[in-house]
Simulated assay, not measured.
Amino acid sequence: MQLALQQIVPIPLKEKFTKRGSDIWNKDLQFAPGEWVKIKAPSGTGKTTFIHIIYKLRHDYEGKVWWNGQELRQVKDNELAQMRQQNVSVIFQDLRLFPNLSARENIELKRVLQTPFYEAGMIDSLAERLGVTHILKQRAGLCSYGEQQRIAIIRALIQPFEWLIMDEPFSHLDQENIAKAAELIAEECTKRKAGFLLTDLDADEHFAYTKVLNL
Rank of each mutant, 00 (worst) to 15 (best):
F31Q: 15
G46N: 11
T133M: 07
W67S: 03
M1W: 12
L157K: 01
N177S: 06
W163D: 13
A81M: 01
T190E: 07
Q148S: 07
E176F: 14
Q175W: 14
K76Y: 00
D77V: 03
M83P: 04
L57F: 14
F17N: 15
P10I: 03
L95F: 09
T115K: 05
E147H: 09
F117W: 07
E119S: 03
T199M: 01
T133N: 09
D60K: 07
L197A: 01
G63T: 10
E188K: 01
T45E: 11
L13D: 14
N106R: 10
L157Y: 07
Y61H: 12
F170V: 15
N214I: 06
N87E: 11
I123E: 05
Q7V: 02
W36M: 05
I91C: 08
L101M: 11
K16S: 06
K180W: 05
P169K: 14
S102V: 00
Q85E: 04
Q74F: 00
V90D: 08
L5P: 15
H59I: 08
K180M: 09
L29E: 12
N26A: 03
G141F: 04
F92L: 09
L198F: 03
V212T: 10
R58G: 01
I107S: 01
F161H: 13
A152P: 02
E176N: 09
W67V: 01
E62G: 05
K19D: 00
K56T: 06
A32H: 15
E183T: 12
A208W: 00
E188V: 00
E205H: 09
D174P: 13
W163C: 01
W66T: 02
M122V: 09
K47H: 03
V212Q: 10
I185W: 10
P33Y: 12
Y145C: 13
K76D: 11
T48K: 09
E168Y: 12
I151T: 14
E15V: 00
N78M: 05
R84A: 10
I154Y: 13
K56M: 10
I24C: 07
K40Y: 00
Y61N: 07
L97W: 02
Y145H: 10
L184H: 02
Q149A: 12
Y55D: 14
Q30S: 13
A186Y: 04
L126M: 12
S43E: 06
R111A: 01
F98S: 13
S43M: 10
G146C: 12
H134N: 14
Q2P: 09
P169W: 09
F207D: 02
R84Q: 13
L109T: 03
Q82G: 00
S89A: 11
E62R: 08
G146R: 02
I165Q: 15
E176H: 12
R73H: 12
L29D: 11
D124C: 00
V212S: 06
M1R: 02
R111D: 03
R129S: 13
T48N: 09
P33C: 05
